[in-house]
């Protein structure tokens, strides 16, 4: 039961990164791929109807973490205090930028929200990447089940660590470019015209940056947390997932030459899902790694709620997720096809 909830939680977070990831990705490259007001509205009409639903995966995953592993929720959220609150502020700004931009016709109003959207998307991507790197690197979790770390110290990984050090910042940058690529490929799929052309161009360039940062991130992981890389390669499933992710990643530039615009995006989805599930598989059963003493780490077994609660959850959770899947299929189908600049149809942000 504990392993099952660990898996379900990991899956929710992966779905969140894949779905809201393309919202952030389009935000990161927003001002670059869309120059005119019409083009920007074209992008907003592609993410406008879905961003809120995508973000709910984060809320639902947070709720699931709370209910299945309350000790990890308490330790993690209070320990990552500053970056988490800053992340919340950025999510507030991002949501407002998408929703409020269309309410006034003025150029300055649009510029303000466009810049806000891009700024919030970039920082959010970096924080998400850095937060994940903190889980891999470990935090000074005490036997009391709590920890506290400042946002940054001297940017080294020891002895007094902060959330941001050279390793987690690089990981944040890696996340930034992966999501930028993801967003560009989403726009290749969902738009046409100049925005699509620029997105293809951005994706091709970004692809090389992703490779470069991927190699650096992995090399640094070998230095900072060799155990993690070891379990990534020793366990069979994580290794298979990594290989699948890499295969999909190398297929992306090939598929960009093809005629089906959905395929490169699928490649990016497989890449992200493969990498994240592999990482979760390598971390299992640890939720938060303690750098003080591995036995202090919070795991699926010592951080969980009572068994009755977990058993009850396994009844309602699948029902809720099945319903949610139904809503998502409805929404994505009702906005199928490409968004075009200048042709603002019913389902769009003006």
């Amino acid at each position: 039961m504990h392993a099952l909830w660990y898996t379900l939680l990991a899956l929710m977070l992966v779905v969140y990164v894949v779905l809201d990831g393309f919202d952030f990705g389009t935000g990161i490259i927003f001002r670059y791929v869309a120059k005119s007001d019409e083009e920007r509205r074209q992008i907003l009409s592609a993410i406008g109807p879905v961003w809120d639903g995508n973000e709910v995966w984060l809320i639902a995953a947070g709720g699931t973490l709370f209910f299945a592993f309350p000790r990890a929720y308490a330790a993690g959220f209070s320990g990552f205090y500053m970056p988490l609150i800053i992340l919340l502020w950025l999510l507030v700004l991002r949501g407002l930028a998408i929703e409020l931009r269309s309410h006034e016709p003025y150029r300055l109003w649009h510029d303000f929200w466009d810049t806000t959207l891009q700024f919030a998307s970039i920082l959010t991507a970096i924080i998400l990447g850095a937060a994940f790197a903190n889980l891999i690197r470990g935090v000074p979790l005490r036997t009391s089940g709590y920890f506290a770390v400042p946002l940054f110290t001297n940017l080294l990984t020891h002895p007094y660590i902060g959330i941001l050090d050279y390793y987690t910042i690089i990981a944040g940058a890696f996340c930034l470019v992966v999501l930028a690529l993801h967003g560009a490929l989403f726009l290749v799929w969902k738009t046409d015209g100049a925005v699509r052309e620029r997105s293809i161009h951005a994706a091709r360039r970004m692809w090389w940056v992703v490779i470069a940062l991927e190699i650096i991130t992995y090399a640094l992981t070998a230095v900072v947390q060799p155990d993690f890389l070891a379990s990534l390669t020793v366990r069979v499933w994580p290794l298979i997932l990594v290989l699948a992710a890499l295969a999909a990643f190398f297929y992306i530039p090939v598929s960009l030459k093809g005629s089906n615009d959905l395929v490169p995006f699928i490649g990016s989805v497989v890449f992200i899902v493969g990498m994240l599930t592999a990482a979760a598989g390598a971390l299992f059963p640890v939720l938060i790694t303690s750098t003080i003493n591995p036995s202090y780490s919070l795991t699926a077994y010592n951080a969980s709620a009572g068994s009755h609660g977990l058993n009850v959850g396994i009844v309602w959770w699948p029902i809720g997720i099945a319903l949610a899947t139904g809503y998502f299929v409805f929404v994505y189908r009702s906005m199928s096809g490409k968004r075009s600049a200048g042709k603002i149809d019913e389902y769009s942000y003006k």
Binding site: G48, D52, G63, F67, A68, A324, F330, Y347
Partner: peptide, 30 residues
């Protein structure tokens, strides 16, 4: 507080996300 009561109130908070927010957010755009 979360540590102490999460095993109970985590249920309703998770259910809110899964049952209410997905529904609400999906239909608001429509």
């Amino acid at each position: 507080f979360s540590n102490y009561a999460g095993g109970v109130i985590g249920q309703t908070l998770a259910m809110e996300g899964v049952f209410a927010f997905f529904l609400e957010s999906s239909f608001i755009g429509a």
